[in-house]
Amino acid sequence: MGSVGAKEVPELLNAEGRRIDGRRLDELRPISIKIAPLTRADGSAFVEWGENKVMAAVYGPREVHPRHLMETDKAIVQCRYNMAAFSVDERKRPGLDRRSQEISKVITEAFESVIFTEEFPKTSIDIYIEVLQANAGTRCAGLVAASLALADAGIPMADLVPAVAVGKVAGRIALDLKKEEDNFGEADLPMALVPQSGRLVLLQMEGHLNRGELREALDLGVTGCREIYRKMREALRARYEAAGGAEEAEAAA
């Protein structure tokens, strides 16, 4: 979790119930979304979420490389999560490490369960997530960006996948932790939801939560995911409204 350089723990929750950046416990950081910033990729999205900046690009379905990974009855999903060297305060050593391998794996598995891979046998759907600036919750921001990029690439899937982390800060359950809260908090619980079916496709936990707290955290996370889902849909709508409206009129004529 980067360097914990501060000498003392900052006050994470003040007397009025406000957090370090003035948010309430159930409040998300501001999110802004840009669809299709890249022209070479089949689909792409850029997400700014608090101080996180994450770019996602999707290629495919396309030929599988290396070939031995090919599945004869479905597409494979390959995802690479990567943090830029300049994304954190102390220079991050570039390249694959245990953390980014793990995140790539869990994100791949989350998408494998929503993409209709059986529609494209013997192909690969490649997802690249690049974290340009990190401030806790980058796997969730990456998932959101990748999900939008998949939609932009026209890849068939059950639903968009919103994601958010819930944590425990100063003894209370809080939505969408930022860096200080993640570093000095007691728990972190990232999750990804498929709103259409209500299933969770990613759930991890770091730190400790008791049964009651876990239940509260899950409820808060699902609520947060649904709010993010609305923003994701708005962004996609805005991007395709002009073209879509005209095409629809044309189809009706």
């Binding site: 026209g154 890849i155 068939p156 899937m157 059950a158």
Partner: peptide, 24 residues
């Protein structure tokens, strides 16, 4: 019934289908 891709819906015998905005 749900949509799986980005596009607009058309209802023409015998199928409901989505005309996609994107995709290979």
């Amino acid at each position: 019934l749900y949509a799986s891709v980005l596009g607009y819906a058309t209802w023409r015998e015998p199928f409901v289908r989505i005309v996609p905005f994107a995709g290979r």
